[in-house]
């Protein structure tokens, strides 16, 4: 099962209106995005969203995917929830 994780993302806009994410805040801590590797219109099939833009970014040396939903102005990432054999649930990327 997958869930949407809302993100607080700092964005920079160029003079011609093109924007890209610069920072992500998680649990009160701000991370600088090293680089935006790739950007495309893509809707993940695992969570609900309306025509989001997918950004493949590098943060702290790791490659992550975050999404921007133009319709709502919200940023999110996708996380997988797994259940252990004991019925406890835990998060994984």
């Amino acid at each position: 099962m997958y869930i949407r994780i809302p993100l607080a993302v700092g964005v920079i806009y160029s003079a011609d209106g093109v924007f890209k994410p610069k920072t992500i805040s998680v649990n009160g801590e701000k991370f600088l995005i090293d680089k935006v590797l790739y950007k495309k219109n893509y809707c993940p099939k695992s969570v609900g969203a309306i025509a989001p833009i997918e950004f493949t970014i590098m943060v702290g040396g790791e490659i992550k995917k975050i999404y921007f939903e133009k319709d709502t102005g919200k940023w999110f990432s996708v996380k997988k929830i797994l259940k252990s054999n004991e019925g406890k649930s835990y998060f994984t990327q």
Binding site: Y2, C43, K45, S46, V47, G48, A49, I50
Partner: peptide
């Protein structure tokens, strides 16, 4: 189904 993938 797009908005609620559990319906797929």
């Amino acid at each position: 189904m797009v908005l609620n993938p559990s319906l797929r």
